[in-house]
Design a protein around this nucleic acid. Structure first.
Lengths: 230, 230
DNA sequence: CGGAACATTGACCCATGTCAAGTGTCGTGG
DNA sequence: CCACGACACTTGACATGGGTCAATGTTCCG
């Protein structure tokens, strides 16, 4: 299949294969944020682009009545703050202690002006982001609660595998509320779905935010219609 | 507010303020497609970028079990085919007779290589697309059926206004099924919601795909939490 | 005129939301 | 070391919005 991105896999732009970008970032300043601290908020002027070094960040929008849509999570290697102009249109909040590289917007635009391929690379990176967002939309728009949760777990598993970590057992850095607001479900439904999957013997939950995938084949088939990665 | 895009407003990239792009496109070849004809399909190699001149196109993905997610509609001025690499990851199907300008991918990459700002412009255009997609996600993920339908109608109204057309009465080029698959609702729910809005005196339906917005203020407040355009 | 495609409407039901209670787990302070 | 509160998570009972299935209506076109 041609799809290059998976649910939740690339909700922020990854910097692999972005050439000179790595070099520029290596010497960018480092910033630490604690869990629950904001990297930036909706309405903030855009001054920097960030790359997550360690930790994890949730990206979300809020409706006036308080409902929240998490549009993605950024993990090590992911970029934050691309794609918007002038002001941020969403909130970026750390969900665990996080270190970030900070790259001034001015540097970014300068690079784009000098290197004709650079802007194009940004474009391509955003294209991947867009594909991931659309995959998520497919999930939240068309799938049942179980399908959503299973897709989410499998996506996390694939990400772990790509990063050379254990794809069958991992720690979820986010709360049930974050997962719910990401998948368009309530906390309770997320919790019940986890319990159901555990009862079916498809997963284990040694702790509430540690997940072990027991029967991946069955899980894959539960996430019916999944747009498989190649 | 800073949001530059609205539900459904920019689901495909618009070419306004894209400088040399206009010039290049003006001499690009023209293609006609009939209603229901595909502009491209998932898996097709990407050979061209298209700009809608007249008509309308639906963009969608399909799950293996047949469920469909419409991710957007492209209207005159909108670009189709940006953001993907190698192969198309979705289907683009005309929903009425449509004329398109066709621009070879090769031309696009050449322009990007020559003009350092061109790639950056593509990036910015995709940024708007991404923002629109996230707005849609907020809608399908967090809102009730009524809120979704009303948001959709208001977005269409705003688009009409921007294009100098009547913002209070317009013809919807798409079917109820298209709207449902866009908003994550069934045909029946879309239909019932239209009927309800009509009964409440908020809209009129002279024909089934012609809508008149009667009480826009009340509609705006029904689309609660709407991320207003500035 | 007949049929196809689309839209509307009704009856029913179920998945998921809502509300409420109860159960860890962790960190802090006595 | 224990008590306490804060917070996250789980579980249950119940309500309901929207899905499903089925029938009917409408429009359009051959």
């Amino acid at each position: 299949m041609q799809t290059m991105s998976h649910l939740a896999s690339q909700t922020a732009v990854n910097t692999r294969a972005m050439g000179g970008f790595e070099r520029t970032l290596a010497q960018a300043s480092l910033r630490r944020v604690e869990a629950k601290e904001f990297v930036f908020a909706e309405g903030d002027p855009i001054t920097h682009v960030f790359r997550v070094e360690t930790g994890a960040v949730a990206l979300y929008k809020i409706l006036v009545d308080g409902r929240r849509q998490v549009v993605g999570f950024a993990y090590p290697g992911d970029l934050l703050g691309l794609g918007a102009h002038g002001q941020h249109v969403m909130n970026a909040q750390a969900i665990k202690p996080t270190r970030l590289r900070c790259l001034a917007m001015a540097t970014l635009t300068q690079s784009a002006a000098k290197d004709p391929t650079f802007g194009f690379k940004l474009y391509e990176a955003l294209g991947r982001e867009l594909a991931a967002t659309r995959d998520l939309m497919l999930t939240t728009g068309q799938r049942s609660a179980t399908e959503r949760v299973v897709s989410f777990l499998l996506a996390f598993s694939h990400r772990s595998q790509r990063n050379g970590q254990n794809p069958t057992e991992f720690e979820l850095p986010m709360t049930r509320a974050d997962i719910g607001d990401f998948l368009g479900l309530t906390i309770e439904t997320v919790s019940r779905t986890f319990t159901k999957l555990k009862t079916l013997g498809l997963i284990e939950l040694p702790q509430s935010n540690r997940v072990k995938l027991v029967d991946i084949d069955e899980l894959e088939s539960l996430a019916s219609g999944e747009d498989q990665e190649c």
